[in-house]
C-alpha cells in the first residue's frame, strides 16, 4: 500500500530529537536566516562555506533524520545546476582548461562551485526543516511570522487535499496505464490522442475537485464557518528557545562578517 499513496512522499520524519522539539517558529526563522546567509556568502569565501556546512550538518546529526535521507532529497536541485554551468566559460579570468573550443576560467570555476555550494547548503536546511517540523506546526509558525492568514489557511487546505486529489490523480494514471500500457503516457496513439486523454484526465480531475470544494465548504458551514479565520493562540516562545534563536542568528552574522574579511 505504501507506494500507492502520495503521502509516501511527505518529507516529514517523526523522531524525538531536540531539533524536532524545538519551536517551529524558531526553526523557520533559523532556516530562513541560514539560507539567506548561504546566498549572501561571497564567491570563494571557503571558510564561511565550511562553517555553514558544519552548522547544518550538526543540526542534521542532532535531528536523527539521517544524513543519507537529507542528501537523497537534496538531489532534486541537480538538474538545475545545468542552468549555471556556463558561467565557467563566460566569467572572465585565467583559462585553466580548454574543453573543445572553450576556455574554462579560474574565476568561472570558483563561481560555479560557489553557486552550487550555496544551493546545496540552502536545500539541506530546507530539507531538514521539513523533515523535523510537522506541516501544521510550520503553518502556525508562518502565521506567527505575519504571513497573511488567508494564505496560510489556504496552504493548510492545499496540504490536506494534495494527498486526497493526488491519490485520485494516481488512480487516473493507473487507469490510463491499464489502457495504454505505460505509466508516463508514452505508449500508443498519436500525440494528439495522448494529449486528449491527458487533457480529459485533467478536466475530470478539475470537476471532481470543484465538487469536492463544494462539499468541503458545506462541511465547514455545518460547523459554523462564517468566513472569518479563527485559530487558537499559540503559546509564547520559551525564553531558552528565544536565546537559541538569537545565538544562532548572531552566529550567522559572524560567519557573514568572517566571509568578508580578507585572508
Amino acid at each position: 500500500m505504501a507506494g500507492e499513496h502520495l503521502h509516501a512522499l511527505d518529507g516529514y520524519r517523526a523522531r524525538t530529537s531536540p531539533v524536532h522539539h524545538l519551536d517551529a517558529r524558531v526553526k523557520l526563522v533559523l532556516a530562513l536566516l541560514f539560507i539567506l546567509s548561504a546566498v549572501l556568502t561571497p564567491t570563494g569565501a571557503w571558510p564561511a562555506y565550511i562553517l555553514l556546512t558544519a552548522l547544518v550538518w550538526s543540526a542534521i546529526i542532532l535531528s536523527q533524520v539521517g544524513m543519507g535521507f537529507v542528501q537523497r532529497r537534496t538531489a532534486v536541485v541537480m538538474p538545475f545546476a545545468l542552468a549555471a554551468v556556463t558561467v565557467i566559460f563566460t566569467t572572465p579570468g585565467r583559462p585553466v582548461l580548454t574543453v573543445w573550443k572553450f576556455d574554462i576560467t579560474d574565476h568561472g570555476l570558483l563561481r560555479l562551485i560557489s553557486i552550487l555550494l550555496k544551493s546545496w547548503l540552502s536545500i539541506q536546511a530546507a530539507v531538514l526543516l521539513t523533515a523535523c517540523t510537522p506541516f501544521p506546526a510550520l503553518l502556525q509558525a508562518m502565521s506567527a511570522l505575519r504571513i497573511p492568514r488567508v494564505l496560510v489557511v489556504i496552504l493548510g487546505f492545499t496540504y490536506r487535499y494534495i494527498f486526497v486529489i493526488g491519490d485520485e490523480a494516481l488512480r487516473l494514471i493507473r487507469g490510463r496505464a491499464a489502457r495504454s500500457g505505460d505509466l508516463n503516457g508514452k505508449g500508443g496513439g498519436t500525440l494528439l490522442w495522448r494529449a486528449r486523454v491527458t487533457g480529459n484526465m485533467a478536466g475530470s480531475l478539475f470537476l471532481r475537485s470543484i465538487e469536492r470544494s463544494e462539499r468541503v465548504y458545506a462541511a465547514m458551514l455545518a460547523r459554523g464557518y462564517d468566513g472569518q479565520i479563527r485559530t487558537l493562540n499559540h503559546p509564547t516562545v520559551r525564553p531558552s528557545e528565544l536565546v537559541l534563536m538569537l545565538a544562532g542568528s548572531l552566529l550567522l552574522v559572524l560567519i557573514q562578517l568572517l566571509a568578508r574579511l580578507r585572508w
Binding site: R160, Y161, I165, E168, L205, S213
Partner: peptide, 12 residues
C-alpha cells in the same frame, strides 16, 4: 476551501 482544493488540483 475553493482556493485550497483547487491548488491541490493543479498540483495533482
Amino acid at each position: 476551501p475553493l482556493m485550497g482544493v483547487l491548488a491541490a488540483f493543479i498540483f495533482a
